[in-house]
Amino acid sequence: MTVYTQHGHDLRLDWGGDGVRALGEDCAVLVIIDVLVFTTSVDIVLGRGGRVLPLPWRDERGQRLAREAGATLVPSGLTGLDGARLSADRSAGWSLRPSSLVTVPEGTFLGIASPNGATLCAAAASTGATVLAGCLRNATAVGAAAHTLAAGRPVGVVAAGERWRDTEPPRLRPSLEDWLGAAAVAAAIPARTPSPEAELAALSYRSAGDRVAELVTGSVSGRELAEAGLPGDVSLAAAVDSSDVVPLLNGEGILERWPG
């Protein structure tokens, strides 16, 4: 065990895939945060009585895994990382975009790949921790659930971040919206001995107060989506505590609502 596990603290916070690996060594619960947009999309689908199979990004096994699980694989070109353009075109039907999912029928089962949130959920499944998917919409509910499920053991919150596009594979770009999402979950967990990383996050969220939506909208990621004609996705993602959905990754690697 190394200092990177933030050992000795009952609430911990880190970033990206390395954060999943470090915190997953010792945490009973891992909460994955990808506000724009994977975990927001998950919240919306599960809130309508659906389920989501998170799939690793650019993994040729994705189609097979979705087919074997009986999930509908949705297009995932929201960020342009796969060469697709950002688009507000609704004719394509369901996608990674939250606003494309607000009318999914009850019982819908979607397979969604994304470079950040979905990939991290899939990776977190292998750590042995209980995995939750959190966002600004469900931060308080997810924080309370994480505390309950951990039963006194450590909770790790992992902000997914975004990606720079100048390297292959693209480098992690820490993002304001995921910092705020992770901070909101951290602030909702009654930790006795939070790590400095988790404590500062919670303090920053409380300090932001009612400006959270404004900050997300004005962030680089929020502006990127708005300039692509997708301001509705940003508004959905920034609706703090508008949901009480707790997405939990079950033993089959599927995100479903907890408690079932």
Rank of each mutant, 00 (worst) to 15 (best):
T2F: 12
V3P: 12
T5A: 01
H7A: 14
H7W: 10
G8A: 10
D10A: 06
L11D: 00
D14N: 11
G16D: 08
G16W: 04
V20D: 05
R21I: 05
A22S: 13
L23G: 01
D26I: 10
D26Y: 08
A28Y: 10
V29G: 09
V31S: 03
V31G: 01
I32Q: 00
I32D: 03
I33M: 12
D34A: 06
V35N: 01
F38C: 09
T39E: 05
T39A: 04
T39H: 03
L46Y: 00
L46R: 03
G49E: 10
R51M: 08
L53H: 01
L53N: 06
P54S: 14
P54M: 10
P54N: 13
L55C: 08
W57C: 09
R58K: 13
D59C: 15
E60S: 15
G62M: 09
R64T: 15
R67H: 13
E68V: 15
A69W: 06
G70W: 09
G70D: 10
G70K: 10
T72F: 14
L73R: 10
S76K: 03
S76P: 03
L78V: 14
D82C: 08
G83H: 07
L86R: 15
L86G: 15
S87L: 09
D89V: 05
R90L: 13
S91W: 08
A92F: 14
A92V: 15
A92N: 12
G93H: 11
W94E: 05
S95I: 04
L96N: 11
R97W: 06
S99Q: 07
S99W: 02
S100L: 07
S100R: 08
L110S: 05
I112D: 04
P115G: 01
N116V: 02
T119W: 02
C121P: 06
A122P: 04
A122W: 02
S126E: 15
A129R: 08
L136C: 08
R137W: 09
N138H: 09
G143C: 07
G143K: 03
A144R: 09
H147L: 04
H147S: 05
T148W: 14
L149A: 13
G156A: 02
A159V: 02
A160K: 01
G161Y: 00
E162G: 01
R163S: 01
R163G: 02
W164Y: 12
R165T: 14
E168F: 12
P169H: 03
P170C: 01
L172K: 00
E177M: 05
G181F: 03
V185Q: 00
A187K: 00
A188T: 03
I189P: 00
I189G: 04
P190L: 10
A191M: 08
R192N: 14
P194D: 07
S195D: 10
P196D: 10
A198V: 06
A201M: 06
A201C: 07
L203P: 07
L203A: 15
R206K: 15
S207P: 14
A208M: 13
G209E: 13
L215F: 07
G218L: 07
V220R: 11
V220Q: 11
G222C: 01
A226E: 06
E227H: 13
P231N: 14
G232T: 04
D233S: 08
D233R: 02
A237V: 01
V240G: 09
V240P: 09
D241Q: 12
S242D: 11
S242A: 12
S242I: 06
S242C: 09
D244G: 15
P247R: 03
L248W: 09
L248F: 14
G253I: 06
P259C: 11
